[in-house]
Amino acid sequence: MSEAPDTPVLRARGLRKEYGKGEGLIRAVDGVDLDVVAGETVAIMGPSGCGKSTLLHLFGGLDRPSGGELLLNDRRIDNLSEKALARMRRTDVSYVFQSFHLMDELTAVENVELPALLAGRSPRAARRRAEQLLDQLGLAGRARFLPSALSGGQRQRVAVARALSNEPLVVLADEPTGNLDSAATLDVLRLFEELHEYGQTLVIVTHDARIAATADRMFSMRDGALVDETRLTGGTTGKLGALVGLED
């Protein structure tokens, strides 16, 4: 990562998103201020309907804010055209979805190389990068499998590999463990931990406390606003034993 440690990669100022009008006005995102620093993992937690998915859609330009400023690498993105937003999604941000959203008729490696192809890379370079990513994520033997032949955890790994295809500045994950069982969740958590160590900037919205607990910072979201920040980095308590009654 070339950025200085404290340069915000993603910066939101007074970000708002409203639906409807008059009486039926819904403030899905209501004045969010947030700085995400390069290499940081930020989790946004909250009950369903608190607006966290909408916030993530705003960050990736899948949806347009009703107000406020949004900057990616010091560049305003809230007023970009659809086309410019699409270009931004090719290289600067990428998504990991709750239900994976893999193309059913494409093999794992074809799914992973798709963003690189959309970004105009040569087929050979895209394929090489995809195979390398699958290899790193422990899916080398599964590259030619269709998603239907993979387990939930493996599918999410493929989706993460796809998100990394164009080396994005930020990976945005929407409930990435929402459809996974306990063991597969652990698998994905390990993967995010590895990404974090590698220096990847991650923004995760979730209502799964486990995934939120692995973040550097955790925000609680209520009624469209971020209400509480928890910095989770720092020394461990070292009192694990107390958790199971082995110590007093």
Binding site: L189, R190, R210, T214, M218, T236, T237, L240
Partner: peptide, 12 residues
């Protein structure tokens, strides 16, 4: 959350 994080780290 800190406790969860510790337990989670240990589990991983």
């Amino acid at each position: 959350l800190r406790r969860l994080r510790d337990a989670q780290r240990a589990a991983m």
